[in-house]
Write a protein that binds this DNA or RNA. Structure first.
Length: 134
DNA sequence: TTCCTGACTCCAG
DNA sequence: CCTGGAGCCAGGA
């Protein structure tokens, strides 16, 4: 993304209100993400977008990835290796301890990876909106 | 405080 | 087929 021009400001930022409507079911967006990810069965994978959609914020798929970034400090551990982008590509491999760690973990679970892309991704894809119902 | 970036995805050219 | 812009929102400089 060789884009450097961001001249557009956001006037709506002035309307920032921290009035949250009694957040009782969602203590935090991150925790919700973690919980969903932890429900992913071994040997199955899902995508950031699927999780975002399940949480009702399809357009916020990036936040799911952001949550994954903070997941490595979360306890119990979150199997972030089971979350990839919509093409089944391991876009977050560099965020693990080593660049090959993600593939190793997946391989141990019986998931084969070729050129950073999960083989038969569509077949082992696990959709929380269908399989899970919190 | 403001500005920028990003483990994403969709849509238009 | 590939490139790029827009929308989302949290956190760091």
């Amino acid at each position: 993304m060789p884009i450097k021009k961001n001249i557009k400001t956001n006037p709506k930022a002035a309307a920032k209100q921290k009035d949250l409507p009694s957040s009782k079911e969602s203590p935090s967006f991150f925790e919700d993400v973690f919980e969903v990810v932890r429900q992913i069965p071994k040997g199955r994978v899902t995508s950031y977008g699927a999780i975002a959609q399940f949480l009702g914020t399809r357009l916020s798929a990036r936040m799911v990835g952001w949550a994954m970034n903070a997941s490595h400090t979360s306890i119990p551990a979150v199997p972030a290796q089971r979350v990839v982008n919509r093409n089944g590509m391991l876009t977050g491999k560099h965020h693990f301890s080593t660049s090959t760690k993600m593939e190793e973990l997946l391989k141990k679970e019986g998931i084969l990876v070729k050129d950073d892309v999960i083989i038969d991704f569509k077949e082992i894809f696990w959709d929380p909106t269908e399989e899970l119902s919190l």
